[in-house]
């Protein structure tokens, strides 16, 4: 299924490449000549969440300049502590675009438009990892962590919150009472840190973030051990709200998708540990949608004897 999406993107890309270039050209030209000149000075505000290593400011600077050059307008990255704040900014239309988790995207699918989805290891998919401190050799499953301290990343995270809770629920545990204590580290990076330093006995992180950490900061990643990997879910997407004109959305998407074809774009993708950005489809996020539905159902009635190998660790 995933292959279909990827190939579809590629096919689309092959056909529409010239058309997109022409379109972009038209937009740029029409803009320069149009009466709507004020918009060129208005910065495009893109919200960022810790679905990737958003603390690497040096890359963000380069990316910002990269986008500004190609969009012909200022770009401003907006950081907030939680996913929630960025989503609120999107909903209140203070920012036009954001890189968010699949979980809030699913929740507000009617209000956000998919802009692009990162392609990671050839797929627009990622996993949730259950990690424990490297010294813990005994834990085999999330249920082994009963009564322990557990670190979530963010209540609006799929991999760092929804996935472990679904897993617990499927194993007939109440996620709210299973651990002696839980806390939010607000970033996948910090979940790894909390587990590595022993603040938490276990944690759930974005697999892509953990892999990237292993690549760039092995000394930290290696202080944790992956217990289980979840099934694959749609990679945290870049979305826009409906305030951004269709032309701008198309140009932005074009620029994002074009990154893999330009040397500085490729360099940046390498720094982000991604292959490229693809257009993506809402269907990618069906797995997350299922999780949300499952948890909502679970809230209503405790389901007995139901297990899904696919959806658990």
């Amino acid at each position: 299924m995933t292959g279909f999406y990827t190939e579809g993107i590629w096919r689309m890309h092959a056909y529409c490449r010239i058309g997109l270039v022409l379109l972009a050209l038209c937009i740029v030209l029409s803009r320069s000549g149009a009466a709507d000149e004020g918009r060129l000075d208005t910065p495009l505000k893109i919200g960022l969440t810790p679905v990737f290593l958003d603390n690497k400011l040096s890359i963000l600077r380069i990316w910002q300049r990269y986008l500004e050059k190609r969009l012909g307008r200022p770009v401003q990255f907006v950081h907030r502590q939680t996913y929630r704040e960025i989503i609120d900014l999107l909903l209140t239309q203070e920012i036009q675009s954001a890189w968010i988790c699949g979980f809030p995207y699913v929740r507000y699918a009617d209000r956000f438009t998919l802009l692009a989805v990162p392609l990671y290891q050839g797929e627009p998919l990622y996993q949730s990892y259950l990690i424990v401190p490297a010294g813990d050799r005994k834990t085999k499953h999330i249920t082994d962590l009963q009564g322990k301290v557990f670190a979530y990343s963010d209540p609006d995270s799929n991999s760092g919150y929804l996935v472990p809770r679904v897993a617990l629920r499927r194993a007939d545990h109440n996620p709210d009472t299973f651990f002696s204590r839980t806390f939010f580290a607000w970033a996948h990076y910090d979940v790894v840190l909390a587990v590595a330093e022993g603040l938490a006995d276990g944690g759930a992180v974005d697999g892509y973030v953990w892999d990237t950490l292993l690549r760039f900061h092995p000394e930290l990643a290696k202080r944790t051990r992956i217990v289980n990997k979840s099934k694959k879910f749609g990679f945290p997407p870049l979305v826009v709200n409906h305030t951004l004109p269709e032309d701008d959305v198309r140009l932005l998407r074009y620029v994002m998708l074009k990154m893999k074809d330009e040397p500085d774009g490729v360099a940046m993708l390498r720094e982000l540990n991604l292959d490229s950005f693809v257009a993506g489809t809402p269907e990618l996020y069906e797995g997350i949608k299922d999780n949300v539905a499952y948890m909502a159902g679970a809230e209503l009635s405790v389901r007995q004897n139901q297990s899904s190998v696919q959806n658990t660790y």
Partner: peptide, 9 residues
């Protein structure tokens, strides 16, 4: 806020 992580930070 019972925010262990922020206290830890």
């Amino acid at each position: 806020h019972d925010d262990v992580w922020r206290a830890y930070q």
